[in-house]
Design a protein around this nucleic acid. Sequence first.
DNA 1: TAAGTCAACGAGTGCG
DNA 2: CGCACTCGTTGACTTA
Length: 225
Amino acid sequence: MGATSPSGLELTMAVPGLSSSSGSEGFGCNNSNGNGNNTVMRVDLDMNQPASGGEEEEFPMGSVEEDEEERGAGGPHRPKKLRLSKEQSRLLEESFRLNHTLTPKQKEALAVKLKLRPRQVEVWFQNRRARTKLKQTEMECEYLKRCFGSLTEENRRLQREVEELRAMRVAPPTVLTPHSRQPLPASALIMCPRCERVTAAPAARAARPPAAASPFHPRRPSAAF
DNA sequence: TAAGTCAACGAGTGCG
DNA sequence: CGCACTCGTTGACTTA
């Protein structure tokens, strides 16, 4: 899944170890659409293109002039929904990339340039901000779901390991404290899951500096998701 | 091929 | 003024 919508949403995730470009395989392991439909991002191409492919390409409808014309006609049917032309969308996207909000002057200038009402420009930016934020939230949600999944898995694995160790019921080896040379009680001992060596639990080694987060090894770089 | 479904999108409204 | 929420329209796609 690309992070681009038909209108070219550009998303940046504020999630560690993630960039929007990694989305193609990083997200969407489970299709949680609920209704069983595929979650393929459909691309609404050519929606601003006149169906006939005719010449009035630039600003098909919704321009200031046409809008007033439709209101004036006062027909029984409501005015057609505005679909921005490709060129209008492109220019709006371009200014959005530069600035996510517009000053009144910029709004006015853009409206003139696009032959739209300032209100339309304003609404476009508003919707664009909202939908960018929504996409971002969705991506973050996916990321957190994956985090949760892998942590759950690791938790299960560790619990199994604990059970296995308990099942072994081997007599705990005698470990002497480094200073007093007294044997440590079994409750003060833990086993390193990586090197499988028995060592004293952090509480029993209170004299050590707090720098090392893990009782076993220096902190390894966090796994990238 | 018509009808149904879905996502995208423009726009209205109320609130802080 | 920006935002959240919402609705109606539209076009692409699916299905019977």
